[in-house]
């Protein structure tokens, strides 16, 4: 397992993908940090602000998860689908015929890199948002326990998104299909579904267990919440369970279907 993990880490780090994704994520999240902090702290003509104090800080910092999660998700998805796209899965299985070990090592390696993505994402959003919060708002609140919790949980959630990407990629081996699915779901299907389902009382329970909503529940705030049209959220532990359930279900299904078949 150690050897397999080492192999998978080398795979991740020996192509340009990871730092391109990381670089784009940094630029994007710094920008989002600035925009969020600006829009929340600016005074409207009647002299009020949308949000102040620690609420504003939490809303800004938590947008790491709401907006940045597509990067670790893509990292994980591409980590697996690239093996099929470039047919290196053959050589991979020649050196590691045990497919349980393969899935476990790929998941672990991506989790580790996902944590790095999480740390960098949090630093980026803070770098973008904190200065404005200090200057226009009531402060950066970087030592406030609520803020610290948001920052630390954001790191963890980003890593879980990376793992979710791996199991998704293990299941959907076609790289193009997998990327389109990730982008369509995260950028289009889920946001609309959350709004639509959240608007109907009977269905708001379904909206809560969508992966993005579950992640928001873990972090404890969301971009949706910042603008006041969020439905009820799961408790923090509920969000964690739902996210892990996605990982386990996708992982088990992938292991029993795609990963059981002959590679071709």
């Amino acid at each position: 397992m150690t050897a397999a993990l080492k192999s998978e880490l080398r795979k991740l780090l020996s192509t340009r993908l990871w730092w391109i994704l990381l670089g784009v994520m940094v630029v994007y999240l710094v920008f989002i940090g600035v925009v969020m902090a600006f829009s929340l702290t600016i005074e409207t003509p009647d002299g009020t602000r949308m949000m102040g104090g620690v609420d504003a800080a939490v809303a800004v910092y938590s947008s790491t998860n709401a907006i940045g999660y597509v990067f670790p998700l893509l990292l994980g998805t591409l980590a697996f689908t690239a093996e099929h796209r470039h047919r290196t899965i053959e050589q991979t299985l020649l050196v590691e015929p045990n497919r349980d070990v393969l899935l476990a090592s790929k998941t672990t390696a991506t989790l580790l890199l996902g944590l790095v993505f999480g740390v960098v994402a949090v630093l980026s959003i803070v770098a973008g948002g904190a200065p404005l919060l200090v200057w226009q708002g009531d402060g950066a609140y970087l030592t406030d326990p609520d803020v610290v919790a948001v920052l630390l949980l954001s790191v963890a959630v980003m890593a879980v998104w990376a793992v979710l990407g791996v199991v998704l990629g293990a299941l959907v081996t076609n790289q193009v299909v997998a990327i389109v699915a990730v982008l369509a779901f995260t950028q289009f299907v889920e946001p609309i579904a959350r709004l639509a389902l959240g608007a109907v009382d009977a269905l708001s329970g379904v909206a809560q267990v969508l992966p993005g909503a579950a992640a928001d529940a873990v972090v404890g705030a969301s971009a949706f919440g910042a603008f006041g049209d969020d439905g009820d959220m799961l408790p923090r532990w509920g969000g964690i369970l739902v996210m892990l359930a996605y990982v386990v279900v996708l992982g088990v299904v992938a292991r029993l279907t795609t990963l059981r078949r002959d590679v071709r």
Binding site: A3, K6, S7, R10, S14, E96
Partner: peptide
């Protein structure tokens, strides 16, 4: 080189 290094750990 990295192609070989990727498979080297399991080959030992």
């Amino acid at each position: 080189l990295n192609h070989l290094r990727v498979y080297a750990p399991q080959v030992g």
